[in-house]
Design a protein around this nucleic acid. Structure first.
Length: 552
RNA sequence: GGCUCCGUAGCUCAGUGGAUAGAGCAGAGGUUUCCUAAACCUUGUGUCGUAGGUUCGAUUCCUAUCGGGGCCA
């Protein structure tokens, strides 16, 4: 008996009461909130439905609760119904009804927790999108971890997700990159506004080694272009490898220039003209974004005929939509939050629904901390911490977990020294250890002849078993919320709770008999619970892109 | 100045209307003849930044304000 079952049971009761005329005419909900009470004395599950609904039937909450409670106590699997406080309905389940789900979890295996809430949704999720002027830094690493986890969470709800990376290999930043390469290749310092990391020397050397002609003999402009073309390609390959090693593989790498080359920009502008949202003023072509909530209109084509940055955004969005994506999600850093109003206005100008067809997730910055004080990362000084640095220091699992276990609204401090120590500070070990334990317990059980040939859920009556079962039961709901709120950190936090409940259970309840002891139905039933926990931990870790080791 | 994120235990943070606000870490003390002690148990600390408002009920929603980070000007 799951919270969803209880919710459905209450809804059926309400319908029946209404049909019998015991409830007045008012809309009935399709589901009610079922929660795990903080205080165990309040039962296994509780609902605030009476307080929420009594008003619309002109009843006081306690009377409403009593009406519902009377029917609920007749439902199979419910052992006890109490009314408490202002009108909470507290439910206690038969141990057997609570434990049934354990078997379901084991049988569902990798599919346990998956849902269909986003079935049929064709989604484009764009994240990282760093230009190839250097390795992925800490900020980009956070989006890689969170974005990929989010994609997996959406997929687990049935969505068809395309992971997309948008980049540009021309422009001022890239010019600085090319000039820096050239300077280093000539044995000079990087220019004032250039990039200073050691990787610049490395890329410069590789460009030289990979070219037959003597590019240093070319004039400045030609040499710079040669370094740009070759350097960008090498840099991009590095980025792709880093991401792949981090467990993140994009389906589409979208080149900004292709929008101009294919005429997509012109088509987007033509479309907006047709819709009547473009106008000319001061020699420039404008999009009237102020119609849709932006604080001022935006120039699309400047008076000198060049396209403004937003021209690419218009074309890119329209391109995504024309590729059939119902939902386009952009994950951007906090430094881009100012773009949100104009992007939303653009979406509305195309006749789409902002927030639905186009959604923008803003994530806060990642700071590097050393000895408790923030360190300023500077590309110029080469003190940037990269994805590879982080992975070298703590490994992929700890890195991905640390970056995805907190809300993206929260700025994140990364202390490399602390993470390098590999202390228990990092909760990924706690969760992974719990998983490894489930595997070793299962191995031991197998060698001692404990198998899953019997399952008698009424025997799972220890308090720690009730707690563990409840945590496992909540997993699908947590995944649903993680998808709905775009918050994969909820998965991580829940796994920590599951791991805690498992460790406490392990301390109280043995799966295998003491030496010389007989294997009983209880041992076999507990093996189901052990294995169900392994399933949940494994499924959850996989959504975060973190491995679930067999032993540690 | 405008916009945005944050403000909850000593530290790092969960908690998008419910009951006595939680976890990890740090501190103190304890647990192992038997499935992994990377574990478990016990123990202290809170004006949920502040002030109003909405509500039967607010850490949660609204308004104002203070403080910190960031972007833009």
């Amino acid at each position: 008996m799951t919270p969803a079952d209880l919710s459905a049971a209450i809804v059926r009761i309400l319908e029946s009461l209404q049909a019998q005329g015991k409830l007045g005419a008012a809309d009935l909900p399709t589901e009610v909130v079922i929660e795990r009470p903080k205080n165990r004395e309040h039962g296994d599950w509780a609902t605030n439905a009476a307080m929420q609904l009594a008003g619309r039937f002109g009843m006081n909450p306690r009377a409403f609760a009593e009406l519902v409670a009377g029917e609920l106590s007749q439902v199979d699997g419910i052992a006890k119904v109490d009314i408490a406080g202002p009108g909470f309905i507290n439910l206690t389940l038969d141990a057997a009804a609570a434990g049934e789900l354990v078997k379901t979890i084991v049988e569902a295996g990798a599919s346990f927790g998956r849902g269909v809430a986003m079935a049929g949704v064709k989604m484009n999720l764009e994240f990282v999108s760093a230009n190839p002027t250097g390795p992925i830094h800490l900020g980009g690493t956070r989006w890689a971890a969170v974005g990929d986890a989010l994609a997996r969470v959406f997929e687990a709800q049935g969505a068809d997700v395309t992971r997309e990376y948008y980049f540009n290999d021309h422009g001022a930043q890239i010019d600085r990159f090319a000039r820096s390469l050239l300077a280093r290749a000539r044995g000079l310092d990087a220019p004032e506004d250039g990039y200073g990391g050691a990787y610049i020397q490395d890329i410069a050397d590789r460009v030289l080694a990979g070219t037959a002609e003597d590019i240093l003999a070319l004039d400045d402009a030609e040499a710079q272009e040669a370094f740009r073309a070759a350097g960008v390609e090498l840099m991009f390959e590095e980025i792709r490898i880093s991401l792949h090693d981090f467990g993140v593989d994009f389906d589409v790498f979208f080149h900004e220039n292709s929008l101009y080359e294919s005429g997509a920009v012109d088509r987007a502008i033509a479309r907006l003209k047709e819709l009547g949202h473009m106008f000319e003023a001061e020699g420039a072509l404008w999009l009237r974004t102020s119609t849709f909530g932006d604080d001022r209109d935006r120039v699309v084509i400047k008076s000198d005929g060049d396209a403004a940055y937003i021209a690419g955004d218009l074309a890119y969005y329209l391109d995504k939509r024309s590729r059939g994506f119902d939902q386009c999600i952009y994950m951007l850093g906090a430094d881009h939050h100012g773009y949100v109003p104009r992007m939303m206005a653009m979406c509305a100008a195309f006749g789409d629904e902002p927030g639905k067809n186009l959604e923008i997730l803003i994530g806060q910055m990642v700071n590097l901390v050393k000895d408790g004080t923030p360190v300023r990362m500077s590309k110029r000084a080469g003190t940037v911490v990269t994805m590879e640095d982080l992975v070298d220091a703590v490994g992929v699992d700890a890195a991905r977990y640390a970056l995805s276990r907190s809300s993206i609204n929260q700025s994140l401090d990364i202390d490399l020294d602390q993470l390098t120590k590999k202390t228990n500070d990092n909760p990924v070990f706690y969760v992974q250890y719990a998983h490894a334990r489930t595997q070793q317990v299962a191995n031991n059980a197998a060698s001692l002849g404990v198998d899953r040939s019997e399952f008698s859920p009424d025997l799972l009556s220890h308090a720690s078993e009730g707690e563990l079962i409840a945590k496992l039961t909540e997993f699908p709901r947590v995944l649903g919320q993680a998808a709905e709120f775009r918050e994969p950190h909820r998965v991580a936090r829940h796994l920590e709770e599951v791991a805690g409940a498992y460790h406490r259970w392990y301390d109280n309840c043995r799966v295998t008999p003491l030496s010389g002891g007989e294997v009983t139905t209880l041992h076999r039933t507990r093996l189901w619970l052990n294995d169900a926990t392994g399933v949940v931990l494994r499924n959850g870790l996989s959504l975060l892109g973190v491995s679930a080791p067999e032993r540690m």
